[in-house]
Simulated scan of single mutants.
Amino acid sequence: MTATIDNLITKLAAWLTRHSIDVLRVSLGLVFVAFGTLKFFPGVSPAEALSVATLEKLSMGLLSGYAAQAVIAGMEVFIGLTLVTGRLLKTGLVVMAGAMVGFFAPYALFFTDLFPGTPTLEAQYIFKDIVLAAAAMVVGARALGASLVPARERRLAV
């Protein structure tokens, strides 16, 4: 019985090693496509006002209103499509690195608005980006050549 369980665990670890980062990449991409697509439609995205205000500040007023929203939407959809398809992945990850600055900028630019005491819904919305950034780091590591190695293979290599 123990040998059967060990064999199943080994097979599961091997499957996860082969597929988990690709599943993470595609699911992260779908999140970006979904959130980006919402931003193409005024009044639909719950983050619209905050994202536009952030880009207005970061661009020193060069981008505002729907133009700012369309830039954000286009960028997020582009990032998402590179993640889902795997095409232009490194370019998408570079764009995402820049976008992450914008994702977290509201904490610096609008801190007192986001935390008037307890965190607002917008502050909580941005907080989820920590998970997206961590997932992007894993996907980026894979894109740059890193790989997972099952524990059994690591033990054999030592």
Rank of each mutant, 00 (worst) to 15 (best):
M1L: 15
T4F: 09
T4S: 05
D6E: 01
D6S: 07
I9V: 09
T10A: 08
T10Q: 09
T10G: 00
L12V: 14
L12H: 13
A13C: 08
W15E: 08
I21S: 05
L24K: 05
L24Q: 11
V26Q: 00
V26M: 00
S27Q: 08
S27I: 15
G29C: 12
V31M: 04
A34R: 15
F35A: 15
F35P: 10
L38N: 14
K39S: 03
K39C: 02
K39H: 08
F40N: 05
F40S: 03
F40G: 00
F41L: 13
F41D: 01
P42T: 09
G43T: 10
V44F: 13
V44I: 15
S45K: 11
S45M: 09
A47N: 10
A49F: 03
A49H: 11
L50Y: 07
L50P: 03
S51H: 15
S51T: 15
S51P: 06
L55T: 06
E56R: 02
E56G: 01
K57Q: 05
K57H: 05
L58Y: 10
S59Q: 13
L62E: 01
A67W: 05
Q69R: 11
Q69I: 06
A70K: 11
I72F: 06
I72L: 13
I72D: 02
A73Y: 01
G74Q: 09
M75Q: 04
E76S: 12
T82H: 04
L83N: 00
L83P: 00
V84E: 14
T85W: 05
R87Y: 12
L88C: 07
L89M: 05
G92Q: 00
G92H: 03
V94K: 01
M96H: 08
A97T: 09
G98H: 13
A99Y: 12
M100C: 00
M100H: 02
M100V: 00
V101R: 03
G102I: 06
G102L: 08
F103T: 09
F103L: 08
F103H: 11
Y107G: 02
A108M: 12
T112Y: 09
D113A: 07
D113L: 06
P116F: 13
G117A: 14
G117D: 14
G117Q: 11
P119I: 15
T120G: 08
L121H: 05
E122M: 03
Q124I: 06
Q124R: 07
Y125N: 07
I126Y: 03
I126S: 06
F127N: 12
F127Y: 07
D129S: 11
I130L: 07
I130N: 09
L132R: 12
A134M: 06
A134D: 01
M137N: 07
V138T: 12
G140F: 03
A141K: 02
R142W: 13
S147C: 02
S147T: 04
V149F: 10
P150N: 08
P150T: 01
A151F: 01
A151M: 04
A151T: 07
R152Q: 12
E153G: 02
E153S: 10
E153T: 07
L156D: 11
